[in-house]
Structures are given as C-alpha cells and as structure tokens.
C-alpha cells in the first residue's frame, strides 16, 4: 500500500511537470475545463431566473446539489481520462501489453499513468458553489457534517471510477469499443439534480443499476434535511464498496479474457 502511494505521488508529480512543460496547452485545457463547469452552473442560474422552483426544490437547494456533485466528479476526473480512452489508447494502440509486462495490477497502473490535474478545478468550484448555496440556506456545518462531506467525496468518486472501470472492461470483449462510454457519461448529469424529478423508472435505474444517485443526491439529503430519503442517505459508502468489488471482479475477468483470446 505504501509503495502504491509513493508510486502514485511519483506519477502525479511527473504528470504535473509534463503538463506544465506545455504551459499554453495546460492553460487552454484549464480554461476549457472551467468553462464547462461554469456553463453547467450558469444553466441552473438561468433556469431559476424565470421559474420559482423545480418540482418542489428551491434554487439554492439545486445549486447546493449541483456544486456538491462536482466534488466527487472532480476527484473522479483526475483519473478518468485513461478509463475513458482505454479502448483506443490501450487496446487498439496496443499499450495494454506494456501494462501486463510490469509487476503491478493493471488497473492501478492504468489509473496512475495519466492524471488530469485541471479536474481539481471542479472540486474547488463545486465546493465553493455548495458552500455559498449552503450559507444561503443557513446550513450549519458540524464536525460530523464535514466528515460526511469527505466520505461522500471519496465514495462518490469510487462509484464513478467503478462504473467506468466496468465499461472499460467491456473493451476486452467487444471489438467495437469506446461507444458505451458516451451515453453513460451523459447519465452523470442526472445525478446533479434532485433525483425525484426524473420519475420512478429513471430514479430506480439511477439508484440500482447505474448508481449515480448515490454519488451526490442521496448523501446530500443529509445536509438539506430532507428526511424522505433517510434510509438511502447513508448507503453511499456501502454502494461504493460493493461497486468497487464488482468493478475489480469485472476488470479481472476482462484481463483474463484478453490474455486468453489475445484480441
């Protein structure tokens, strides 16, 4: 574990250096990333300009959810690039063999090899928006709340990582690759809004099939004092653990398939 941690720090510092070597590219990427975040928040602000509430949720509540959702999403995005481009970069361009030639678990190598540092922007902006909206809502932060915030940020990121590891594993089995990532990536949007507005069917899918509801919405009800979701509110770490195990199992199966079919 300590070796993995020191290794990760090594990789992280190196990719930081490598990114900063092309300063213009880095700034351009940071700008692009900031714009994407801003556009999403701006949509919520514009939406509430002419409407009183969203299915019973006030502007500050929705902004709180939206901001909070960016925290696990940002952590996830530090690692997500290699998962998202896994099929093209590693399978089609043949880099995966090199991972197999190194004495380390392949998934750990994959997550480490390239970091997207601009994603830290999402964590910062999201936290800022959530704190601002929380202040407007008059939320008081106890030590337990802060602890829960940390747990949710990490667990939520784990859920996202697990889901996209599973999708990346599919590239071991199917010739036609990257396709599934895009629609599931778009599903993340649903997790930024109050889940009940999406109706029972979609709500069930987002809770029990692709558990994006547990990334932000359910745990956030703890802060918003919406007691209707008391039972699911604290399940996030459990869902994260379950999906992490599932993700590892599917990945292992995928690697086994790759090594036995040689595709």
């Amino acid at each position: 574990m300590r070796r993995v941690l020191s290794l990760y720090t090594g990789f992280f510092v190196q990719s930081l250096k490598a990114r900063l070597a092309y300063r213009a590219d880095f700034l351009s990427e940071l700008f692009a990333s900031l714009l994407a975040t801003a556009a999403g928040i701006l949509f919520v602000v514009l939406l509430f300009h002419r409407i009183p509430d969203l299915g019973g949720w006030r502007r500050e509540e929705v902004l709180f959810l939206y901001g909070l959702s960016l925290v696990p999403y940002g952590i996830f995005n530090i690692f997500s690039i290699n998962l998202y481009e896994f099929a093209d970069r590693y399978i089609i361009e043949g880099r995966f063999d090199r991972l197999l030639l190194r004495p380390m678990p392949t998934l750990a190598q994959l997550l480490m090899e390239r970091s997207r540092l601009t994603a830290l922007q999402e964590v910062a902006v999201g936290l800022g928006v959530a704190l601002w909206a929380g202040a407007r809502l008059g939320l008081a932060w106890s030590a337990v709340d802060l602890l829960w915030l940390g747990v949710v940020a990490v667990s939520g990121a784990v859920i996202l990582l697990a889901v996209f590891s599973i999708l990346a594993s599919l590239s071991f089995f199917f010739e036609d690759r990257i396709g599934v990532n895009a629609p599931v990536w778009n599903l993340i949007q649903f997790g930024r809004f109050p889940l009940p507005i999406f109706g029972p069917w979609l709500g069930a899918v987002l809770s029990w099939v692709i558990p994006f509801g547990f990334v932000t919405f359910y745990p956030a009800t703890h802060f918003l004092g919406r007691s209707a979701f008391r039972t699911l509110c604290y399940a996030t770490p459990l869902v994260a653990a379950a999906f992490a195990l599932l993700g590892l199992a599917v990945w292992t199966l995928g690697v086994r398939g790759y090594r036995s079919t040689g595709s």
Partner: peptide, 15 residues
C-alpha cells in the same frame, strides 16, 4: 513527456 531519469525512477518504484 518525462525526462529519461524520471522514467527510470518510476520504473524503479514499479519494480
């Protein structure tokens, strides 16, 4: 994108 010695250091850690 890394300098050779940095790659070597990372490989040293991996192995």
């Amino acid at each position: 994108d890394l300098a050779v010695i940095e790659s070597f250091t990372l490989l040293g850690k991996i192995y």
